[in-house]
Computed example of a mutant assay.
Amino acid sequence: MQATASIAISERIQEQTDETPLDAPERAEMVRRLFQEHNRALVGFLVARLQSEAEAHDVAQEAYVRLLQLEQASAVSFLRAHLFTIAGNLAIDRIRKRQVRERNSPQQFFEELLTRPGPDRTAMAQEELEMIKDALRELPEKCRRAFMLHVFGGHSVQEIAVQMQLTDRMIRHYVARAMAVCRQRLDDAEAG
Rank of each mutant, 00 (worst) to 15 (best):
D93L: 07
D93G: 13
D93C: 06
D93P: 04
D93Y: 04
R94G: 04
I95T: 13
I95V: 15
I95F: 07
I95C: 07
R96K: 13
K97L: 11
K97V: 15
K97I: 11
K97E: 14
R98L: 11
R98V: 04
R98F: 06
V100C: 06
V100P: 05
R101C: 07
R101T: 10
R101E: 14
R101G: 01
R101N: 09
R101P: 01
E102G: 04
E102L: 14
E102Y: 10
R103H: 11
R103A: 15
R103F: 10
N104E: 14
N104Q: 13
N104H: 14
N104I: 00
N104Y: 15
P106L: 05
Q107K: 12
Q107P: 01
Q108A: 11
Q108D: 03
Q108T: 07
F109D: 08
F109N: 03
F109K: 10
F109S: 06
F110I: 06
F110Y: 15
F110G: 06
F110L: 12
E111I: 03
E111Y: 12
E111F: 11
E112N: 15
L113C: 08
L113M: 15
L113F: 06
L113Y: 08
L114M: 10
L114T: 10
L114A: 09
L114F: 15
L114K: 01
L114N: 03
T115I: 04
T115P: 02
T115L: 12
R116G: 12
R116D: 09
G118V: 07
G118T: 09
G118S: 11
G118D: 08
P119F: 05
P119A: 14
P119C: 05
D120Q: 13
D120P: 01
R121V: 07
R121N: 10
R121T: 15
T122H: 10
T122R: 12
T122M: 11
A123Y: 01
A123G: 03
A125M: 14
Q126C: 06
E127R: 14
E127G: 11
E127P: 02
E128C: 07
E128Q: 15
E128P: 06
L129I: 10
E130R: 12
E130F: 10
M131D: 05
I132Q: 01
K133Q: 12
K133H: 09
K133G: 02
D134Q: 15
D134W: 05
A135D: 02
A135H: 01
L136W: 04
L136N: 01
L136T: 03
R137N: 12
R137V: 02
R137Q: 12
R137C: 06
E138S: 07
E138G: 05
E138K: 13
E138Q: 14
L139I: 01
L139R: 04
L139H: 03
P140Y: 06
P140N: 09
E141I: 04
E141L: 05
K142F: 02
K142H: 08
K142P: 03
C143Q: 00
R144I: 00
R144V: 00
R144E: 06
R144F: 02
R144S: 05
R144P: 02
R145D: 06
R145N: 09
R145Y: 05
R145A: 10
R145P: 00
A146R: 00
F147Y: 14
F147L: 06
F147V: 02
F147G: 00
M148T: 15
M148A: 14
M148F: 12
L149I: 02
L149W: 06
L149H: 08
L149G: 00
V151S: 09
V151Y: 03
V151P: 00
